[in-house]
C-alpha cells in the first residue's frame, strides 16, 4: 500500500523522539554535567540525546589527540627551564608545511653549536596539526598539545608562537599523556642503564 514506507520511517523518528524522554526518566536529574553520564551518553550504548553541553561539560580528549605542538622543558634545581630540545632541526625538516623556525646559536668561546634552541617559532596559521614533529623528535622535546580552545581576535600579533608561548613543563606533558610519558621514561631509563653498564664495563 502506498504510504507504508513513509509510516515505517516516521516510526523510526518517533522512536528516537521517545527515547530522549525515556532517557530523561532513566537518568532523572543526573543526566548532565557528570563524567559517568557523559561517558555513557557518548559511548556505544548512547540512546536519546547525544549532545555534549559544551562549555559546561567537555568531551574528554583521548591521549593521542593533537592540536598545536609545544616544547617540553624540565625545571632545573634553581627553577630555571631546561629545554629538552637540542635544536637538532629534525622537526623543522620533517614539518610538511614548513612552519617551524629554529634559531641555533654558537657558543662564542668554542664556536660549537649550543644544544638548546635560542629561538623557536611555530606559525599556527600554517601548522596542520599533523604530529610529525612530535613523532620524529629524537629527544621527546616537542609534543602535541591537548588545548584546543585557542580562538582569538587578532592573528597578526600572536599567531606566530615563540619559544615562550610554546614552552610547557614536563609535568603538564605527563598530565595530558600519562601513558606515552611512562613509556618514554622507561625507555630513557633503560638507555641510561645500558650506558652506565657500558661505562662500567670499560
Amino acid at each position: 500500500m502506498y504510504g507504508i514506507g513513509l509510516i515505517k520511517g516516521l516510526g523510526v523518528t518517533l522512536k528516537h523522539f521517545i527515547e530522549t524522554y525515556l532517557d530523561d526518566i532513566r537518568w532523572l536529574g543526573r543526566r548532565y554535567y557528570r563524567d559517568e553520564s557523559l561517558a555513557e551518553r557518548q559511548g556505544p550504548h548512547a540512546r536519546g540525546i547525544f549532545t555534549v553541553q559544551y562549555p559546561e561539560e567537555k568531551l574528554p580528549v583521548p591521549e593521542e589527540f593533537r592540536c598545536i605542538p609545544f616544547l617540553v622543558y624540565e625545571v632545573g634545581e634553581d627553577g630555571e627551564r631546561l629545554y629538552r630540545c637540542t635544536s637538532c632541526g629534525i622537526c623543522s625538516k620533517v614539518c610538511p608545511p614548513q612552519c617551524i623556525w629554529i634559531v641555533r646559536s654558537n657558543d662564542p668561546e668554542t664556536g660549537r653549536p649550543i644544544p638548546s634552541p635560542t629561538e623557536f617559532f611555530i606559525d599556527i596559521d600554517i601548522c596542520m596539526n599533523c604530529g610529525l614533529c612530535a613523532e620524529y623528535c629524537p629527544f621527546d622535546a616537542i609534543k602535541m598539545d591537548h588545548d584546543y580552545e585557542l580562538a582569538s581576535y587578532d592573528r597578526l600579533a600572536d599567531h606566530i608562537y615563540n619559544k615562550e608561548r610554546l614552552s610547557k613543563p614536563v609535568t603538564y606533558y605527563e598530565s595530558i599523556r600519562p601513558m606515552n610519558f611512562a613509556f618514554e621514561e622507561a625507555a630513557r631509563a633503560e638507555k641510561e642503564a645500558a650506558k652506565e653498564a657500558r661505562r662500567k664495563a670499560k
Binding site: 625538516k93 617551524i100 623556525w101 606566530i160
Partner: peptide
C-alpha cells in the same frame, strides 16, 4: 623541502 631558511637560522617570517 626542507627549506634552508628554517634551521639553523630560522627567523620566523610571514
Amino acid at each position: 623541502k626542507p627549506f634552508n631558511s628554517r634551521w639553523p637560522e630560522g627567523k620566523a617570517f610571514r
